[in-house]
């Protein structure tokens, strides 16, 4: 209950802010898309599994340390009140040209004005639609600053206790939209970079285009086939899988997004 109240307050404040300054310097330009470069590092993902023995993790680092990166692009469309995040058609690895994987059903849609989420993704081989009210992570605000894609960012930290991920996000001080890549949101500025488990996965904006959006935020016309679940049900599925993989001493990250 407490959580719910706090976050509706949180987004209420944001809405009030948007409503209070309808003609502030951002309102016309705060719309556009961001191309993120997502770098997966399979060794670091393995090393982050605390249930593997020290020897297994050291061996993984020794054998594949420098050679286990894979890069892809993703796109975030945003307005001050809405966002949609999806995989990009564009290839980030030149070696991937000429080969096509099946695209899984995937997008993460957020409406900050109505405080709702509508996420579609494949989880353990099944397509799910998560429709629920929006709950932002409990971010801790830190003091570091750096530049990402031309914007000065501050950092915030959140620990996902289900997937055991330590996430550092860098949010732009001059882009007051609470959106972000993957399922991240709820910071005073757009999240331009997110780092999971010290580089196991790094998502960094590398092109920001401010432009009027057309239909990019719309849901696909084709009806999405998938099982509708709530945010809590989603968390239960993930928690159960991670727990099973922990027992089997195998990585949990095959079959779901990191």
């Amino acid at each position: 209950m407490f959580k719910q109240t706090r976050f509706s307050l949180f987004f209420g404040a944001l809405l009030a802010f948007v409503a209070l300054f309808p003609e502030n310097m951002y309102s016309q330009e705060l719309e556009g898309d961001i191309r993120y470069l997502v770098t997966h590092n399979w060794t670091k993902k393995t090393i982050a599994l605390d249930y593997l023995s020290k020897q297994q993790r050291e061996r993984a680092a020794y054998m594949w340390g420098n050679r286990s990166e894979w890069k892809v692009y993703t796109t975030l469309y945003f307005t001050p009140t809405e966002s949609k995040y999806e995989d990009s058609e564009e290839r980030a690895e030149p070696d991937d040209e000429g080969y096509s994987w099946r695209k899984e059903a995937f997008f993460i849609k957020r409406n900050f004005a109505q405080n709702t989420l509508y996420d579609v993704f494949t989880l353990l081989g099944k397509t799910y639609i998560v429709e629920d009210s929006l709950r932002a992570p409990e971010w801790k605000i830190l003091n570091d600053m750096k530049e990402v894609a031309g914007h000065i960012c501050m950092n915030a930290y959140w620990e996902d206790t289900i997937k055991q991920q330590r996430i550092t996000a860098w949010f732009a001080l001059d882009l007051p939209v609470p959106a972000g890549p993957e399922r991240l949101c709820g910071l005073p500025g757009l999240i331009l970079e997110a780092d999971y488990n010290d580089g196991a996965m790094n998502i960094a904006a590398n092109r920001i285009q401010m432009k009027k959006l057309d239909k990019e935020l719309d849901l696909p016309k084709k009806k999405i086939k998938g099982k509708k679940i709530s945010e809590d049900e989603y968390a239960t599925i993930v928690r159960k899988h991670v727990e099973e993989k922990r027992k089997a001493e195998e990585p949990w990250f095959w079959g779901m997004r990191y």
């Binding site: 706090r6 949180f10 404040a13 502030n24 951002y26 709820g186």
Partner: peptide
């Protein structure tokens, strides 16, 4: 103008609320 102002939980710096200054 438009500085980010935030209220954090004093025990662990968790973000509780945020807003912006006006012009």
């Amino acid at each position: 103008a438009y500085a980010t102002v935030m209220l954090l939980n004093p025990t662990d710096s968790t973000l509780v609320n945020f807003s912006r200054s006006d012009e």
